[in-house]
Design a protein around this nucleic acid. Sequence first.
DNA 1: TGGTCAAGCGGAGAACTCTCCGCATAAGTA
DNA 2: TACTTATGCGGAGAGTTCTCCGCTTGACCA
Lengths: 183, 183
Amino acid sequence: MSAQEERAPRKDARINRDRILETARELIEKEPDISLNAIAKAAGVGPGTLYRHFPNREALVLALYQHEIDNLVGLASSLLLRNPPLEAMRLWMERLAKYGRMKRGVANLLHAAITNDIHNSSYSQMVGAIEALLGAVHADASITGADLLLLLGFLWRLPPGPDGKARGERLLAFTLDGLASQA
Amino acid sequence: MSAQEERAPRKDARINRDRILETARELIEKEPDISLNAIAKAAGVGPGTLYRHFPNREALVLALYQHEIDNLVGLASSLLLRNPPLEAMRLWMERLAKYGRMKRGVANLLHAAITNDIHNSSYSQMVGAIEALLGAVHADASITGADLLLLLGFLWRLPPGPDGKARGERLLAFTLDGLASQA
DNA sequence: TGGTCAAGCGGAGAACTCTCCGCATAAGTA
DNA sequence: TACTTATGCGGAGAGTTCTCCGCTTGACCA
């Protein structure tokens, strides 16, 4: 039972958090490898404050891209409304691939979300979206949503450039064929 | 043309390299996250020396496991001699999975070899082994050896424990089904 | 409005990775 | 053997990640 009452955060804490995020967005855009200390300084807070809000670089980047993850998650259900299941799956994966290619940030953050902290909410959202797609394709899949997300990890480890794109497309086609043949 | 004569390394350099490797093998066994400085100190060399021989942690771990990579590469051809292609492929992948599970080192190092340095010899050896297996399964595969190695990356990103093992087995079966249905 | 106290802050500092460069020395040369 | 030189060595130190803890302050209550 014991529903632990999470007291709302203090206002200054919220302000600091927002300032850090805003500053980080600008600085990381310019220079992806900028140090967290430098971000803290630019945001006008101490390093301790930054690290309290975001325990490591990945957590910070994750927060930066939370919005885009939300989009991706929402996309799954809307694709399912308008398309046959396999087609929805294909379209969704292509969008995922696009994120993986464009923003290496999304890439690493998803990997981090997957590996570091299994109770991470972004991770469960993503798994949920995939489960929905997978369930539409066939009710009793041999692999789970989490399995598939892990498998799709290749999308954010592709080398940059047209070569990487081609490899991503081949592997995606391979994966979809596998899913289709199970249906 | 210009075949640049690589002069043989100095004897003391070779000795130091070996001492570092030997020390690293012992220390990393006990404590995987031990600092490179600590390894250098234990090996009786300065940090600079360690970093000259191995530019970063991954390069060092890669050197430690070079022997096991050689084994894996050799295994591919001997499996092909004794088994039908698909079975050889299956057995080889299972061995790969075992390495991935047992030694997280092999894991990360392979990832590093794949992503960082495309001209890395361990990487090309592995791709070669996979090409051989793939070629035996079907002459005109839609995916390349490098593609498949990238796909198999899930093997060294599995969570530890029985849960991870089960997931690995499911994904491996999925992958093999896909390869088989292309044959 | 003043008092209480937990939430939150900042920065000193520990530990680490990796680089740079002056010095030592192994390996060729005469 | 004595000389030369470029290969390799070591460690100081710059830059980074992340932690710890004493101090500050916002939020709630009387």
